[in-house]
Design a protein around this nucleic acid. Structure first.
Lengths: 354, 354
DNA sequence: CCAATCACCGGTAACGTACACGCTACGCAA
DNA sequence: TTGCGTAGCGTGTACGTTACCGGTGATTGG
């Protein structure tokens, strides 16, 4: 009652296992008739290749380059952990992960790629900042037949194998829906984002604006504020925003760099009065959520993104399975009532159950 | 540059690979001194067993019994798919899944277990209904050294290996928080649940009540209505509930059997007026969410539960890793704005990215 | 007519591990 | 002394697959 092997096919057909192997893998040195017989027999007895034997024999070692920014660490550190988790999964492949770290999105990534031009990578995972800057590099890799998977954001017009991100448009839409359900008064909302050259950020802003227009006619929207991920700038921008009256009724912070904004709100004594929706989760954010000062935070599941990115790369490199171009995760809506479920995973490296 | 094998350890120490094998696995017929030398060397050169070779050699075939109810199909069908997905993952183990289906939770499960008393299962996955009924059966399995993993609900006082569920308490708490943010008026809320003998259901009700008391002093709570998962009963109970004035301001339906309740609300023409939070997701629910008639639904991620349950069972049976007793998933909060992300996975078997 | 090429196929050595089996040396009792 | 048990260790084989090396006929070129 053991699963059939190529040996069984060979014996049933009176040929050798070498012939069966060649036939099954579309190699040469097999006559068309025997190939057809082998394929039919394999189908008939339900042959499934034993991947343990295969990976033992092949003993492939994959070198994967992982190009991620250092900032924002609360997001990219767990993403790296996810990649590591997928690499240490018991798949029988020897993976060598080469982590390359540049300061921040769209800053220093190109320099790393040119420095690594001679590296022989079997595949690459990268967080793209500005698609216009990094696109040609990704296309060059594609010409060298090196599969690239984008995480955290996307570079739509370049030839990457796939992109794995949280659904940014949905993030913005969720924020808009929560505001529309919570705020009954008439007034305006503000958006604070990172870089509008980054696709992920611009999609959040678009999703927010589009859904706000539909669901909350009572709420108008100020032009999005670009903080360029600079804490001091974000702080000053928020102070400026709060100096004009009337105050916005709510602020959607679509970047994980929310602390400077929250600090400004605190200093202006408006933290409880203005509704705030933030992005992602890190220890400093927890007390704000626990105390109800933050309405919700939209968790982009960096660990899951990293894990999935490497899993897709594996399946492509080993099994030849081309993944769907877009893998879009549903962001988790973290409220005060479910915060504990996520906070418990912040400390250690894994967040398996999120 | 290949990873070290037991052969490398053997050569470095001048012993045979058999000795190394015995030493590494704590078997007999090795002197304490050689065992210590082997263990030290293995540590030193960073030996990691090649799991492909191991599973090829052992060629283990695991028979797993999966005892799940037919109803509610929208929940347990994807849970089964998750189990299947984990079984077909490329781990190199031959798994034989034996699906046993009983009519509904706490109904017909014991009969199946007694009928299968002679079956040789290496592990069992089961959705427990009433812990008092099924507890002794689970304990009997534990005495036969058969690991049991509970899904969907739990049987806390029986000797199961682990339980994998959505965090029921958090589900109730989330529902309470959403109501408290949305409903400003003073009034009362209703809860419709399945069986209060099922731990999952009672925890939801408790989480709901506890958080409502804290966060929404303006909202009082009616005693929970037990529908016993009978559609007609649920319908009549809802009609009765809606015949008394004043109407409840909101209804929390903590079972996936929400359609009869929604139908009653529709007939009484109260669907838009009374806020509703439901549980789980299935095609009939989609138009209600799209039209805003349902505030939110709390998705318990059945696919992920099934997948995780079998993965934990594998890690225990193959690697001997004892899992954490409680695996609690964060339920997904599905609103109108993120519905599409989940609805697209309802049709086919997988919901990989949720 | 012989040599060279070619299509096709069989046999077999690994890959790293687990385990059954066999062997040696030593201790102890008869 | 012989006989026997056993602790400790080495050897061989199998798991299923792939890659490689040959080998056999048949066909072709000189």
């Amino acid at each position: 009652m053991k699963p059939p092997s190529i040996k069984d096919i060979a014996e049933a057909l009176g040929v050798s296992i070498g012939t069966v192997d060649r036939a099954l893998h579309g190699r040469t040195d097999v006559s068309p008739t025997t190939r057809a017989r082998v394929l039919k027999k394999a189908e008939q007895i339900g042959y499934q290749p034993n991947i343990a034997a295969r990976s033992l024999k092949l003993n492939r070692r994959l070198r994967i380059g992982v190009y991620l920014p250092r900032e924002i660490a609360s997001f990219f550190d767990p993403l790296r952990s996810g990649v590591r988790a997928a690499a240490s999964a018991p798949t029988g492949v020897n993976v060598e992960l080469v982590f390359r770290t540049f300061p921040r999105l769209d800053e220093g990534d190109l320099a790393l790629f040119t420095a690594d031009a001679d590296q022989k990578f079997d595949g690459i995972i990268v967080a793209p900042g500005n698609p216009d800057h990094i696109g040609s590099t990704l296309n060059a890799l594609a010409r060298r037949k090196i599969p690239v998977i984008c995480v955290a954001s996307d570079a739509p017009r370049s030839e990457r194998l796939a992109s794995v991100t949280a659904d940014a448009h949905a993030s913005g839409a969720i924020a808009a829906e929560i505001f529309s359900r919570t705020i009954q008064k008439t007034g305006h909302l503000a958006t604070i984002t990172g870089e509008l050259t980054t696709l992920d950020h611009v999609e959040k802003v678009r999703g927010f604006a589009a859904n706000l227009a539909v669901f909350a006619p009572n709420l108008s929207l100020l032009p999005a504020i670009e903080s360029h991920e600079q804490p001091k700038l974000a702080y000053r921008q928020t102070i400026a925003l709060l100096s004009r009256k009337p105050y916005p009724l709510g602020i959607y912070i679509s970047t994980a760099n929310s602390i400077p904004v929250l600090r400004a709100l605190e200093e202006k004594n408006l933290l409880g009065k203005i509704q705030v929706i933030t992005t992602d989760l890190f220890p400093e954010l927890i007390p704000y959520i626990e105390s109800g000062k933050i309405l919700a935070t939209l968790y982009q599941r960096p660990f899951t993104q990293g894990k999935t990115a490497l899993e897709l790369l594996f399946r492509y490199l080993i099994d030849g399975v081309t993944p769907a171009t877009l893998a879009r995760f549903a962001p988790h809506i973290i409220l005060r009532s479910n915060l504990a479920l996520f906070a418990s995973y912040l400390g250690d490296s894994g967040d398996a159950s999120t």
